[in-house]
Design a protein around this nucleic acid. Sequence first.
DNA 1: CGGCATCGAATTGCAAACAATCTTGTGCAC
DNA 2: GTGCACAAGATTGTTTGCAATTCGATGCCG
Lengths: 214, 214
Amino acid sequence: MTSPAVDDAYERLRSLIFSGELMPNERLVETDLAERLQVTRAVVRTALVRLGQDGIVVLTPHRGARVRVVTDAEAVEILQARAVLEALAARQAAVLATAREVTTIRRILSGMAHKIADGDLLGYSEGNATLHAAIIAAARHETAARLIAGLRAQMVRFQFRTILVPGRSAHSLAEHTAVVDAIARRDPDAAEMAMRHHLSHVEAALSHVARRRS
Amino acid sequence: MTSPAVDDAYERLRSLIFSGELMPNERLVETDLAERLQVTRAVVRTALVRLGQDGIVVLTPHRGARVRVVTDAEAVEILQARAVLEALAARQAAVLATAREVTTIRRILSGMAHKIADGDLLGYSEGNATLHAAIIAAARHETAARLIAGLRAQMVRFQFRTILVPGRSAHSLAEHTAVVDAIARRDPDAAEMAMRHHLSHVEAALSHVARRRS
DNA sequence: CGGCATCGAATTGCAAACAATCTTGTGCAC
DNA sequence: GTGCACAAGATTGTTTGCAATTCGATGCCG
């Protein structure tokens, strides 16, 4: 089951939503998507069912699919869930990371420091994603990795906002450094705490943005 | 999209897997399921896609669907993820639970105590599930609730085992009491810690069972 | 002029037939 | 007797067509 065609369509739809080409609340007409992706309607359909099941689109009977809009309150919820799961991953990484992985993580962190120094916030944001991914990989925790990936997918439209809060970037770097140091020091408790600390600050920044907008 | 027929088939397949009528690693033939559920093959198919997406069955191209077997190592992972998420729920419940909800939770707990006293382990296990559900409901955290539900669904085949570990039930009751007390006391930190403590003990019991079997 | 019923177009949901792929069993060669 | 090629059956994947439902527009009535 789940033919390559469906997998492909699923991935491509995901990235279309990720990249913002398909906007939240936009109506997704099966026929249009089928033509756009050069596949049949049935393939689009099952891809949409899968996207619906992981909460990226909402499916209403006879009314089709829409890109799910994530409210500010939901974004906070998602971030809270991510926080405890990524903290779990950081804890595991502190125990299971190989020396090589620790080196890689350190290198990513120093790259981020340089980006900050250059004022390259976009590059910093990319480094941020890379660092989190490296930590999750080092944790060797399939379940946590899967759940976090799903949560991240739902939050795409919020990602780029928090880094713009004034003064956030410097704090962010310090928080990441604490996480990396704890992992390198093989201190699971400290790694978990540091990651939770970090993501609770992201949450605060997000709330800040949400308030300003409402 | 997602017609009532599909929803129904999805739910029924889920409970067939839950109840153990469809065993892990059992091959799920679309035609057979269609006849069994009195729906068409197409309906079964999309229900299977959904079940596949939340990790309850595995779908292999041209080879059909099977009920996913959860290894002992995976069960531990799932339990760890559940632990941090339920701890988050307990924390939120300590903040957001209404007085009425606290009363309900207390009543469930005392019911569990009676079941233990009567030596009714099965009834205790049910009370356990009810209590966790009540705490999650009180937390008003949709995201955590959804993730936990998904994780529980994957673990069905392991649920009933841990309570059989000698002496486990008494400890279990004490742990639950600590969680409930913290929530009633409106102490988020204590509630979170108590829930993590509880589930880490479940994890230990699970590992115990896993070792005995291998 | 505004509100409401009705009709039509667009879109989704469903079913059946067909094609592609895998699996199993049989027979043949060595 | 063992291993491999091949064919038949079973099962999944895809296409096509049709039925059911919703949404919007048009016209009618108050």
